[in-house]
Amino acid sequence: MSGQPRSRQPRPASQGRELTFWLLTRYSAVALFVLALAHFSMTHFIFDPAEQTAEWITQMRWNSLALRILDWSMLIIVLTHSFLGMRTVIMDYLKGTTQGVVLALLWILAAILVVLGSNVVLTLPMQ
C-alpha cells in the first residue's frame, strides 16, 4: 500500500479475490445507500423507536413476507459490506500471525451474526 494515496482503497491491479472483494464492497455500498438509508428513515423518522416494540415487529413489520425478504437481504448485504470493510482495516494495522488470528475471529463473528439474524428473520412464526 505504500506509495498509494489513501483517500480510498485503490482498485486492485490484478484479477482474483482482492478485486472481487473490492467490487463487492462497491456494489453493496450502492445497494446499502438505498436500503440502509431507507431503513434508518423508516425506523427513526417515520416511526419512533419507542413504538417499535417486539410485538409491533412481529405483528406489523414481520407479518409481511416481502418485508422479511427485504430485511434478510439487507442483513446479508450489510454484513458482507461491513465485514469486508473491517477486513481492510485489520489488514492495514495488523501483520503476520496476529492478522491471521484476528481475521479468523472476524469471520467467526460474521458467521455467528448470519446465523442469529437469519434465524430470527426467517423462522419467527407469522402472527
Partner: peptide, 12 residues
C-alpha cells in the same frame, strides 16, 4: 450492526 443483529435476535 453487531449490537443491532443481537437486539433484533431478542425479538424472537
Amino acid at each position: 450492526v453487531i449490537l443491532h443483529v443481537i437486539d433484533i435476535y431478542l425479538v424472537g
